[in-house]
Amino acid sequence: MAISTVLNFVYPPPPSVFTTAASVMIVASLAIVGLSEARGVHLQYSKFALAPNRKVPSRTGMLLFYSPAFLAGLASFLIFPDGDLRFLVLRSAISLHFFKRILEVLFIHKFSGRMGMNSMVVISLIYFLSTVSLIYSQHLSQGLPEPPVDLLYPGIALYLIGITGNLYHHILLSKLRKEGEGEYKIPKGGLFGWVICPHYLFEVIDFVGISFISQSVFSCSWTLATFFYLLGRSYSSRRWYTSKFEDFPGDVKALIPFIF
C-alpha cells in the first residue's frame, strides 16, 4: 500500500544500479554530515572556518562550490538535446539555481576570511555529483509512464518561491556588514525574526520544488538529504549566535518557524 501510494507521485525507479546507489549514498552521507554539524564538527567555511593549514580565499572556494555543478547543468543541454517539458524545466531550474549562487558570490556576498581546502573539495564534489545524478536519473525516466499526480507546476511555483526567498535573505545578510568589516551581527528583517537561517529554509523550499518538478526517486532523496544537512547546519548556527551574543532573541528558532 505504501509503495503504491508513493508511485502516485514519482516515476518508478529506473533499472539502474548507479541511480539506486546514488540515492542511498546522498541521503546517508548528508545525514551524517548534518549530524556532525549539529555535534559541532563543521565543514570549514563561513563562520565555522577554523583557519586550517591548507586554505583558500572564501570567494574562490565558494565559486568552486558551484561552478562545476552549473557547468554540468549547461552541458546536459548538449548531451541530452531531446526531452519532454519536465526534463527541460528540471535542467533549466538546476542550472539557474547554481548560476544564481555564482552571481551571489561575485556581487552580493561579503567575505572576510578563508576556508579549508578539504571542505571546498567535498562540497564541490557533492554538488557536482548530485547534479549529474539528478539529470541522468531524469533522463532514464524519459518514456516511462507519468506519475498519476502531476506536480510539475506546483514544483515550479515552490522553486520560484524558494530561489527568490533565498536571494532576498542573502541580500539582507550582505547588508549587515560594510565592505572590509569582519565582525558578525545578529541578522534582522525578513524571516530573521522567526528563524536564524531563513536562507536555508528557502533553500529547502527550492529543492522541494525541484523534486516536485522531477518526481524521481533520486530528486526526492536529494531533497531529503539537503534537509538533513541544513537542519544540522542551522542548529549549529543558532547555537553559535547564542554563544556570541547575550541579547540573541530566545524565541528565534534555527530553521522552521515556531518548531525547530
Rank of each mutant, 00 (worst) to 15 (best):
V121Q: 05
A254K: 10
F9Y: 15
G83E: 01
L255V: 06
T5N: 01
T60E: 03
I171V: 13
F218S: 05
L151Y: 08
S119A: 13
V17M: 06
A21R: 11
S236A: 15
S211G: 08
T60M: 09
G116N: 13
R238F: 07
K110I: 06
F258H: 08
G250A: 10
Y168G: 02
S119M: 11
V217Q: 04
D247F: 05
A22N: 01
E37C: 08
F99P: 11
S211Y: 13
V204Q: 04
G155W: 00
P257K: 07
S124D: 05
K55N: 04
A31P: 05
L176G: 09
F48N: 08
Y66G: 06
L30I: 06
I94K: 02
T131G: 11
L144S: 13
Y66R: 00
L88F: 04
R86G: 01
K188T: 03
M62H: 05
L64S: 12
T226Q: 08
V10T: 13
G182W: 09
P257V: 10
G250L: 13
N166Q: 07
T19P: 00
D247V: 15
F245C: 00
Y127L: 00
L152P: 14
E146P: 00
L201S: 15
P13L: 08
L30P: 02
Y159E: 04
M25A: 15
V252Y: 02
Y235P: 02
H109I: 02
I102H: 07
A51R: 06
F111T: 06
V105W: 08
A49H: 06
H42I: 08
